[in-house]
Amino acid sequence: MIALPYWRLSSFYLFYFALLGATAPFLALYFDYLGFSSARIGELLAIPMLMRCVAPSLWGWLSDYTGWHLAIVRFGAVCTLASFSLIFINKTYAWLAMVMALHAFFWHAVLPQFEVITLAHLQMQTACYSQIRLWGSVGFIFTVVIIGSLFDWLSLDIYPVVVVVMMTGIVGASLWVPNAQPVIHGNHFTGDSFLKQLRSHGVLTFYACVALMQMSHGPYYTFLTLYLKHFGYSRGVIGMLWALGVVAEVLMFLAMSRILARLSVQLVLLASFLLAAIRWLLLGSFAEIFWVLLLAQIMHAVTFASFHAAAIAFVQLSFGSRQQGQGQALYAALAGTGSALGALYSGYSWNLLGPTLTFNIASVAALAATVIISLRLQETH
């Protein structure tokens, strides 16, 4: 295939997104099991997303300044494990809020810097990124299917243990990955050059649309499991439905190198935003119809996979080699801002306005991104 440590890089994505598969569908379910209201659940899930607004930029600046991308990945992985383990001490709201904030500060240091390492190994073969990243989707699928079935016959009391096992896998994978540095062309870029490029045409527009896209995912990541449970779906079936979305995601990642070779980044982003708006309308109004629910989950291929692959490509095209850490970190930070807003608004509106209107708000956010990207972002190949 390509001369790079394929399996070492892939193993990290496998464990990292296996952890996401343990948290995205089931963390809200666990907090519900502990007896928290929908508003408190929304707040607890918003805390790590709020940390994602700040932490990646701080770690990104440090990594670009020092060049210690892999060291920061390893340090962040160890500290994530250590800080989340504090959950075994107490289960009060204040304590859990502290655990969510502390572990997220380190967790959100990890992925943006690992993306820099992966792209440095790939060098000019960025079209192969999706073939490595798809193993993250495989990890997610495996986790949601196994955990969904597991929780159908075991108590949710074991949930924190499952999460700690996933975090231990991330630590091990980070120690196995070899280091690589971005290739520097010409003089080193300064912080001023990063800000100058950030102000160039289309870059701020892109980041604003990233925030809107992630905001639109708020009800999906916060309440989908509880929402489907309300319609009578078992935890095992819910896990399979989450897995279906990620299977579609994997297939899209496999096709993204060919898609991006033929279509502009702008067009791929535009299609992703528009289909996201349609997906949230379907989930909000027709989730009790099983075939519509299946269709909505298959659409995860475009609302996540094509969007993420195009976004990574946009960031790499928009920033120099010494700016990549900050560019990827800002992408993570703006995604975190949108995710936090999505979790907060959905937490408060779920009982006040109901699931249908909550998903309709998500659809409006994605539609706004569609309009903005079509008017303001230049064609980017």
Results as ranks from 00 to 15, higher is better:
Leu9Val: 05
Ala22Trp: 00
Phe26Leu: 04
Tyr30Ile: 00
Pro48Val: 02
Ser57Leu: 12
Trp59Tyr: 06
Gly60Met: 02
Asp64Asn: 05
Trp68Pro: 04
His69Tyr: 14
Phe75Ser: 08
Ser83Val: 05
Ser83Thr: 12
Ser85Tyr: 02
Ile87Asp: 00
Phe88Met: 00
Tyr93Cys: 02
Ala94Glu: 13
Val99Ala: 01
Ala101Met: 09
Val110Ile: 12
Pro112Phe: 01
His121Ile: 00
Ala127Ile: 03
Ala127Gln: 14
Gln131Leu: 14
Gly139Ser: 10
Phe140Pro: 02
Leu150Ser: 15
Ser155Tyr: 03
Ile158Tyr: 13
Met167Val: 05
Thr168Asn: 13
Pro182Lys: 09
Leu195Asn: 09
Ala208Trp: 09
Leu212Gly: 07
Met213Pro: 03
Gly218Ile: 00
Lys229Ile: 05
Gly236Ile: 09
Leu241Thr: 12
Val247Ala: 15
Glu249Ala: 12
Leu254Asn: 04
Ala255Glu: 06
Leu263Cys: 14
Leu270Thr: 11
Leu281Gly: 13
Leu283Trp: 06
Val292Lys: 11
Leu293Cys: 07
Leu295Asp: 07
Phe304Pro: 03
Ala305Arg: 01
His308Tyr: 12
Ala309Gly: 08
Ala311Tyr: 05
Leu330Phe: 01
Tyr331Asn: 08
Ala335Tyr: 02
Gly336Pro: 02
Ala340Gly: 10
Trp350Gln: 10
Phe359Ser: 06
Ala366Phe: 13
Ser374Thr: 07
